[in-house]
Every structure is written in C-alpha cells, then in structure tokens.
Amino acid sequence: MSVDLAHIRQVMAEADCLFNHAEVEAAIDRVATAINDELAERNPVVFCVMNGGLVFAGKLLPLLGFPLELSYLHATRYRNETRGGDLFWKAKPEIAFIDRDVLIVDDILDEGHTLAAIIDFCRHEGATAVHTAVLVDKRHQRKASPGLKADYVGLSCEDRYIFGYGMDYKGYWRNAAGIYAVKGL
C-alpha cells in the first residue's frame, strides 16, 4: 500500500491544535496524581493498550511512585483507518492478573467499544477491579454503553478526528507533540 506523504504532511499543516505540548503534559501530571492517590497500595498490573496508549503510558508511568507490574495488550478496531470496524485482538495480556487490580492505559475513549471489550476481558479473567486511564475523552452521545466512563481522564475534547500523543491519522502523526484535529473530520 502506497502512502501519499504529501497528504499526510498537509493534514498536519492544516490541523487545528486542540491542546499544545504543555497542556497535554499538565493533564498527564493530573492523571498521575490521581492514580498515585488511589492505587498506590493496590499492587496493580498496568496494561498499555497498543499502539495508541504507548506515548501516554510512557509519559505516565515514570510519574507513578509505587511498585507495579507492566505489560501490554493490543486490541484494535481501526487498523490504520479513520473508521472503526470489528474488534481484533493482536495480543492478549501475558501477565497473570487474577485477584489483582488492573489499570488499563489507553489513548482515547471515543465510542468505547475497544475499551469496553478489554474491561470485560479483564473482569472475566479474574481481575479484582479494573481501572481505566485515558489521555482524551471525546464528548458525544455514541458511547458503547451509556455509563461507560474512564476512571482517569487527562483531557476532554470535541467530537472530531484527532491525532498526536499516540493517536494516529492513517498510521501517522502518533509522534505529534500536541493533540490536533484533522480539518474537516
């Protein structure tokens, strides 16, 4: 598959910056403080949801001042597209978490189908409690279930197609040092 790099660059050039680097870093600090206050004595297993949660987890974990076990899982609905499809498990958790608290770290809570499936999986596999941390929560009425909310939320944004800090546009710009909205999406 050939990628039109000129188009990818144009998307960034035309994008609206919703949150700059400093605003995102401050939000991550707030999330870390809340997690430290609530989970420090719970011996959690932390799962980073790949690939989107990688940047957020990488920034968040050094701010957590307690012992934890870390692993990853990879479930996706997007596969480098701009619209979600069926849930596809690329890698399930490899660390045992039976009778343990689990903290899921992901980039975004959009409609929530992926996050809801991961939460259900962890509960079904024996987690004592499942906590969720997302960098961004999109404001809209299309959540997978009406009560689906992340326990820890860095930022809230309008219902647009966003990228940066781990979130991508067609597989690109996960490395953007801010959170941007694609013009027209």
Rank of each mutant, 00 (worst) to 15 (best):
A34P: 00
A34R: 12
A34Q: 11
A34Y: 01
I35K: 00
I35T: 02
I35P: 01
I35D: 06
D37T: 14
E38H: 15
A40Y: 05
A40D: 00
A40S: 14
R42D: 09
R42M: 10
N43D: 14
N43W: 04
N43F: 04
N43A: 13
P44K: 09
P44S: 09
V45T: 06
V45H: 05
V45R: 04
V46H: 05
F47Q: 00
F47H: 02
F47E: 02
C48Y: 01
C48F: 05
C48S: 13
C48L: 08
C48W: 03
V49A: 10
V49K: 02
M50A: 08
M50P: 01
N51S: 10
N51V: 07
N51P: 03
G52D: 01
G53I: 06
L54E: 09
V55E: 04
A57W: 02
A57R: 02
A57P: 01
A57V: 02
L60H: 12
L60F: 09
L61Q: 11
P62M: 10
L63S: 07
L63Y: 01
L63Q: 14
L63T: 08
L63A: 12
L64V: 10
L64F: 05
L64S: 08
G65D: 14
G65E: 13
G65I: 11
G65T: 14
G65N: 15
G65W: 01
F66A: 10
F66D: 11
F66Y: 12
F66G: 07
P67G: 12
P67H: 14
L68G: 10
L68R: 13
E69D: 13
E69I: 03
L70R: 09
S71C: 03
S71W: 07
S71I: 02
L73W: 05
L73Q: 06
L73Y: 05
L73C: 13
L73H: 03
L73T: 10
H74A: 05
A75W: 06
A75Y: 06
A75N: 06
A75I: 15
A75T: 11
A75K: 02
A75V: 15
T76Q: 08
T76D: 05
Y78C: 06
Y78N: 07
R79T: 10
R79S: 14
R79F: 11
R79D: 15
N80W: 00
N80C: 06
N80V: 03
E81Q: 15
E81D: 12
E81C: 07
E81P: 00
E81V: 08
T82G: 03
T82H: 01
R83C: 08
R83N: 08
G84T: 02
G84E: 01
G84N: 01
G85H: 05
G85V: 04
G85K: 08
G85P: 04
D86C: 02
L87E: 04
L87I: 15
L87H: 03
L87G: 04
L87Q: 07
L87T: 13
F88W: 11
F88T: 14
F88Y: 14
F88L: 15
F88V: 15
F88N: 12
F88E: 14
F88K: 13
F88R: 14
W89Y: 14
W89P: 12
K90E: 12
A91M: 11
A91F: 00
K92H: 06
K92V: 11
P93V: 09
E94L: 07
I95N: 04
I95M: 06
I95E: 05
A96C: 10
A96G: 15
A96D: 15
F97Y: 00
F97N: 00
I98N: 11
I98T: 15
D99R: 03
D99F: 00
D99N: 11
